[in-house]
Design a binder for these strands. Structure first.
Lengths: 244, 244
DNA sequence: CGGAGTCTTGAAATATGTCAACTCCCGTGG
DNA sequence: CCACGGGAGTTGACATATTTCAAGACTCCG
């Protein structure tokens, strides 16, 4: 982990400005945040926080990908969240987390010391309000994932995962479908996210490649060739779903 | 559904007073809530809210048990939450939910019209704060359940479920272990909660009965005879866990 | 007493996990 | 520049936990 004191991007120019915890903030409020923030970076594979750690800071993920994971005594692991740019780490009023946070790619965090930040919340309703919104969104996502983990088949899980990647990629404002996407995780990590084994992930991905739903250029870079088929494979509502 | 205008229990005498959304409220604040609230009751099996419904009210569950469930097109269903007394239904700033809420037993709700309630939140920090706490708790529970759904075996799932029942029963302030508990759900409902089939639930429950971990008096009433063994069977940390 | 909902139990089917070998990259260091 | 080594992915054969299908038993309630 590195503390980067130099490249302090101005909040107003921040790439995640409109989606992060500071989304609703006015110019003045940004100025306050500006004072408090500092960047930290982590290399791919670095742990960011361990389960049970005392939280000394909270942060927005600016760049890169991180995972929230739980591990059982015997080594079985399950991811319980995927952090992409603009996602938030930490909870108001909680000093501990009960999962591990790990950097999957190189990661840049926009950090705030927890205590000052919590003080800030009291005086900045825009932040508090956004924090609640984000917590409720996370809850919805978690519940959607419960359905996936409990009831979907391997194929449906993979399809849903890819489908979600497409959605989130577009949130950023990118074009619709048919563009190059990137798998942000190894197949083993995908397996841990979906409650599968890496072999099953490989086979299902292979199948969808063979069926012409997906097309890989590189081992990581791919494209959704047949979006309707992908949607169909998710097992979610049968309507074509935000189709062309 | 019935609107019960008569039996308006005073907040100060409410059985869930100390754990519900009003937990942190002072006497004055309770008076305000008192004005707004009304009771509704539902019979076992009644739907309380459907996915996509517009939320006209929010509520605390006073009595009984309800479930949050998602259903796929082809009928597969997954419960994503279990509501016991003191749990809250509804979200600040959200007018819709994307799961069904169903009364499993007869249920009594302490309801507030959504609009007035949201207005209230702004002026009653104690309620807003408690609401955030409760949302974060739900999130933790949801993530714990993701681990269960994704990685635990049938036996571990059942054990974890029973274990959770014991915990929650004690939260109310009851004595430790070795007392009569009640299965609040049918085995089919348990199956839907755990991502299993009812047959598997029956078999695993039967096994734990045969092994002398559980003992049933009635089809619904039972007792945990061997708590350490139960804890062991959950697959969670190996220490004996809040043992006698 | 009948009947429906709930639970139990068995046998067979199957999706996914497990184990194991092999390939393909890609970066490192000789 | 090549050889090496390790991580990642692929693929096959086999094992197995859980589901599926099916029949029957129990229990509560009208």
């Amino acid at each position: 982990m590195t503390i980067d004191l130099l490249s302090r991007t101005k909040c107003s120019e921040c790439p995640i400005r409109h989606r992060a915890v500071c989304a609703h903030c006015s110019g003045d409020e940004l100025d306050v945040l500006e004072q408090l923030k500092s960047y930290k970076t982590f290399k791919a594979g670095d742990p960011i926080l361990w389960r049970g750690d005392t939280l000394t800071f909270v942060a927005s993920l600016v760049q890169g990908v991180a995972t929230l994971g739980k591990t059982m005594e015997d080594g079985r692991t399950q991811m319980v969240g995927l952090l992409l740019p603009s996602d938030f780490i930490g909870r108001p009023g909680r000093s501990q987390i009960d999962f591990d946070v790990v950097a999957v790619t190189d990661v840049t965090l926009c950090c705030f010391q927890r205590k000052p930040f919590e003080a800030l919340i009291a005086s900045t309703p825009h932040v508090a309000q956004r924090l609640v919104e984000m917590a409720l969104d996370e809850l919805d996502v978690a519940r959607e994932w419960m359905l996936l983990l409990g009831r979907k088949t391997a194929r449906e899980k993979i399809a849903t995962f890819i489908h979600m990647l497409v959605q989130r990629q577009h949130l950023g404002g990118a074009e619709i479908a048919q563009q190059a996407l990137v798998l942000p995780l190894t197949q083993e990590q995908i397996a841990n996210y979906l409650g599968l084994t890496l072999e099953t992930v490989s086979r299902q991905l292979g199948a969808m490649k063979k069926e012409g739903i997906l097309q890989f250029s590189d081992r990581r870079r791919f494209e959704v060739v047949d979006f309707p088929a992908l949607h169909l494979a998710t097992g979610d509502d049968s309507d074509g779903g935000m189709l062309v």
